[in-house]
Nucleic acid binder design. Structure first.
Lengths: 136, 136
DNA sequence: TATTAATTCTATCAAGTATATAGAGTTAAT
DNA sequence: ATTAACTCTATATACTTGATAGAATTAATA
């Protein structure tokens, strides 16, 4: 399951995609529109900023806006920021690789072999979904 | 990410698949072979029994054995027993459906639409992987 | 220049989940 | 009667999730 944080992030990015190149949006407005706790959303938007998806203007009449075009943001990269690896096992992850504690021989492991296939499929489909997709 | 419990279950099922129709195996032996904490494995084997994958003989020289043929057990059904829904969102799950708390209109939700596709792909690939696959 | 309304940042909290461990019980072969 | 296995329930501990709190900073504008 995806975390709520990640789902909220997706909703926020959809909001900002709809407003792309039309100036910034207030956190409060995004929160209301997406039915998201405002203080929680603040953290999320900050994470999105640090990850390079959105920009912000501070102070009075400040707010957030999308930096990249909706078409150029895909689901895989957003997912990784909030929920980490797409892979189901650490040993098959490219971006978050870790050795399985219980593993004795990673090379001959048939579990790893099969879960690599699953990961590759998931990665491909999530990479194909971009934020223009969500607007259609 | 998959839970360790689910991974241990898969390892145990692979062990029992290798021993299919050759009598039962002791929990202790499976634990040693799979590098799994024995007491934790006991719970897992019990879950696998309740789920109908394995059978057991009690008492002295008792143990666990596979009921279904390795070919007839697929990854999707094992995953669901331990980690629940394959879907990334509750609203797109068939077996574990729940309404998203923050959702206002499920029918027009484009997030739901896209995540349905992801779930369907994941479900298909996990259904194709059976325990004979792991032995090859 | 004071006020206002926004973002920024860090800390904290409560509830739930994951990963085990413990121990008493039941069962069946020897 | 003993032994060695499964069965079942309870408990512990650490981690994660989802959320809240509040002080600091920033910038438009009246």
């Amino acid at each position: 399951m995806m975390s709520k944080k990640c789902k909220y992030a997706i909703k926020a990015l959809i909001c900002l995609s709809e407003n792309y190149q039309k100036g910034n949006m207030f956190t409060a407005d995004i929160a209301q529109k997406g039915n998201i706790p405002k203080k929680f959303l603040e953290q999320i938007l900050l994470d999105l900023k640090h990850a390079g998806f959105v920009g912000s203007h501070q102070g009075y009449k400040g707010g957030y806006y999308l930096i990249k075009a909706p078409r150029e943001i895909n689901l895989a990269e957003v997912y990784r920021v909030f929920d980490g690896a797409i892979a189901l096992l650490p040993c098959v992850s490219v971006n978050y690789y870790e050795k399985c504690e219980d593993c004795t021989d990673e090379v001959s492991c048939t579990i790893k072999r099969e879960f690599s296939k699953i990961k590759e499929q998931s990665r491909l489909i999530m990479k194909e979904i971009n934020f223009k997709t969500f607007l259609e």
